[in-house]
Design a protein around this nucleic acid. Structure first.
Length: 260
DNA sequence: TTTCATGTTCAGCA
DNA sequence: GTGCTGAACATGAA
């Protein structure tokens, strides 16, 4: 799941459920997901403190701890959050925060590719990870100059977090489908009109996905590729069948007829 | 049983 | 430095 729209939903969920409650303890069930060096230090930061807000950058969620620093979540391939009360801990919980009044926030991640980290500053963290501008905030001129600077396939470029942050395999397919651009097209060969189309559709697709609670299958089947992705079905535009290829190591779905 | 998967990172190579 | 490929990570679904 976790591309920009999913993480946006998690962030809203976090803000709705997990702010302003005193943290009573922190548990790690799989140390592999901890990226920061010291769990002890992290626990000391969290214990007795509260979250005051959460924000998203790319595929990362930053939860502000009191006045001091952020707990950072990256959801890997299968990460999610689950706020609940009581003793029944969700299956595949890897990290958990206990609040007062029996409330808990579980970081659930079957495949354990997710990460939990700590940082003093979102800006520094973004810099350290060398993330590009967030896909929902980047301006057209910046977007164009980033994409034009590379000769890689446009799909690889869109998915590269160091160029534009937030887009993954699923949504890059949809953005390119909406734009009528083949995933293998070289970034620096795209003309201004195509770049503007991709930019506009990037915003449109991400916004639509967020509105649908980051459920790709909930997007209208008539206009979107994603509900048909994974099955070699007819293109929703009726111009042929959807094809599956590899682009820079990832499976790409596209319609050869309408994505030139 | 085998294959594949929404992500990241790194080694090896041209 | 660029950019590609494949592997590794760990688990579950088809």
């Amino acid at each position: 799941m976790p591309e920009l729209p999913d993480v946006e939903i998690f962030t809203r969920y976090f803000n709705k459920t997990s702010l302003s409650q005193t943290i009573t303890s922190v548990e790690v069930f799989r140390t592999r997901i901890l990226r920061c060096s010291s769990f002890k230090a992290l626990r000391e930061r969290l214990d007795g403190s509260r979250f005051v807000s959460a924000e998203r950058y790319g595929k990362y969620l930053f939860a502000r701890i009191g006045k001091d620093g952020y707990l950072v979540f990256h959801f890997g391939m299968t990460g999610s959050l689950c706020y609940f009360r009581g003793k029944e801990i969700p299956r595949s919980t890897r990290f958990m925060i206990d609040f007062v009044h029996d409330a808990r926030l579980a970081f659930v991640d079957p495949r354990v590719f997710g990460k939990v980290d700590f940082t003093e500053s979102v800006q520094d963290y973004v810099k350290e990870k060398r993330l590009g501008p967030d896909a929902m905030n980047v301006g057209l001129a910046t977007f164009k100059s980033i994409i034009q600077a590379s000769g890689r396939p446009i799909k690889a470029e869109l998915m590269d977090q160091k160029r534009i942050a937030g887009i993954g395999n699923i949504y890059s397919d949809e953005i390119l489908f909406q734009s009528g651009v083949a995933p293998t097209d070289r970034s620096n060969k795209l003309d201004d009109g195509q770049l503007a189309d991709i930019y506009r559709n990037m915003k449109k697709v991400l916004k639509a996905a967020i509105a649908k609670h980051a459920d790709p299958d909930a997007l209208p089947k008539k206009y979107y590729l994603l509900p048909h992705r994974g099955k070699e079905e007819e293109c929703p535009r009726g111009c042929g069948h959807i094809k599956r290829i590899k682009v820079s190591g990832r499976t790409a779905y596209y319609c050869p007829a309408c994505q030139k």
